[in-house]
């Protein structure tokens, strides 16, 4: 699978909530796009991520 365009090793499907923590993200500080759609954080614990998924993990940064 890909996270932010980079390959991420995923042997078996994993819940989104677990994957984010495992990949090193701070769950309170990110939002997620899966297959072009925003996955609300209330759905993270029921959303399974598979080996062929592309995930975008987004955070606030400084900007004008």
């Amino acid at each position: 699978m890909l996270i932010n365009g980079q390959p991420y090793p995923l042997d078996e499907s994993r819940l989104l909530s677990e994957l984010l923590t495992e990949a090193g993200y701070h769950p309170d500080r990110v939002a997620v796009i899966l297959g072009g759609r925003v996955v609300p954080r209330t759905d993270w614990e029921t959303t399974a991520i598979r080996a062929d998924d592309c995930l975008e993990v987004i955070a606030f940064v400084g900007g004008g």
Binding site: N4, G24, I58, A59
Partner: peptide
Amino acid sequence: VTLALRRANIGGEGNIL
């Protein structure tokens, strides 16, 4: 205060918030 959204980094200097 305004902010932007970009791909998240792992680690780094912390979060703007």
